[in-house]
Write a protein that binds this DNA or RNA. Structure first.
Lengths: 204, 204
DNA sequence: CATCAGTTTGACCATTTGGTCAACAACACG
DNA sequence: CGTGTTGTTGACCAAATGGTCAAACTGATG
């Protein structure tokens, strides 16, 4: 159904550079705080040239967010109904924490959008995300009913996982201000803490 | 030490109205996204009149944030070394959740500031907040050493409490998009979940 | 009522910023 | 090498926005 849009070498390179620069700037300054000049400069282009590839500032933002949603849902998708319940959930927690370590800008971009009312991704939240949560909540409830997991409301359990793991990316400055860690050493402590924490809370 | 600044009735009323309006606008749109016109309109004043009471947009923001820090730390201050460890922590969790229910705008203002690098409160984070965390972490460690609490790193335990409770204010839109709750009914479910969750994780 | 500090605002300004455009440069390709 | 498509940019524009200021208004007080 889509018209095939032949991408030239230059197009591919520049759109990629723009999106990368925009992610950096948006996650640092927020949508309103980011300027096209900053993004253009960081991408190594002039502003009109940037606007040759994207029709508007908002279009860049939307492109970033919609591309991000899939990445964001992937770790939860991997949770396997037929695995060991506690191991599956702990593994999910650690995957999510790993994303906070590896993709903090993406996490902040997401957080920023939601804190401001998610005007551009509310549909995806109410659609894809909600559906996935319902699916996995049913799996977790099944585990609970089978006596393999402590009886905890599955949806709120998922919220707790998102909150605790994304906290290390979104509130990075606060965490660092309190722990004064060398480099990212505290992520290892966080992983250890979260694993023990969830194992304790989840065992039947 | 402070010079006594005699506040007229009108001054008190207007500065209060400005701060209230600014909280609403800042928490909704972020610092850069908020405009003085919006704040002035919502406070029922003209823009020059607003600037008669505060010297700049940033001054309003700083005033809000510094006033907020005390409110934010209060629930943790209340945690009593001599109480029952698990009950003290659970009570702290519920107080914090109650703040997300009652003061969501304050929570979002705070979250927004930190996500953007906390340029205006980093000193307070590294000072007051850090000191309080160190103090209470020592208390929790004492409880653990006494065998009254599961051995979990105290600082990361505090992070988890902040994350899970503030999530219901900061990510309100996402929570609602997934749960489709009537009014604020889901806060009761969250309270029940968090209480059970922390009781399970914390028992020795 | 007179006075004066305190309060309010319309008009205005400088800057920032998202976006446009015409002209020019680079490139692919027959 | 000629030609049409793709890529690039300096100059420019309109709107938004933080902030100023002189002038006018209001209210408390003697």
């Amino acid at each position: 159904m889509n018209k095939v849009r032949p991408q030239t070498r230059i197009q591919r390179k520049n759109t990629e550079a723009i999106l990368e620069a925009a992610l950096s700037v948006f996650s640092r300054a927020g949508f309103r705080g980011a300027t096209l000049d900053q993004i253009a400069r960081e991408a190594g282009l002039s502003k009109p040239n940037l606007l040759y590839y994207f029709p508007s500032k908002e279009a860049i933002h939307i492109e970033l967010l919609s591309g991000l949603m899939d990445v964001w849902l992937a770790p939860l998708h991997q949770m396997d109904e037929h695995g060991d319940p506690i191991e599956e959930i702990v593994a999910y927690v650690l995957r999510k924490l790993e994303m906070s370590r590896e993709l903090p800008n993406e996490s902040r971009l997401f957080a920023n959008e939601i804190v401001h009312g998610a005007p551009r991704i509310l549909d995806q939240i109410k659609g894809d995300l909600r559906a996935l949560v319902e699916e996995k909540a049913a799996v977790i409830q099944g585990w609970i009913d089978a006596g393999k997991l402590a009886p905890l409301e599955p949806r709120h359990l998922l919220f707790s996982i998102w909150a605790t793991t994304q906290h290390y990316a979104d509130f990075d400055v606060q965490v660092r201000g309190i722990l004064r860690p060398e480099a990212n050493a505290h992520f290892n402590d966080a992983a250890e803490f979260l694993e023990q924490f969830y194992r304790r809370a989840l065992r039947p």
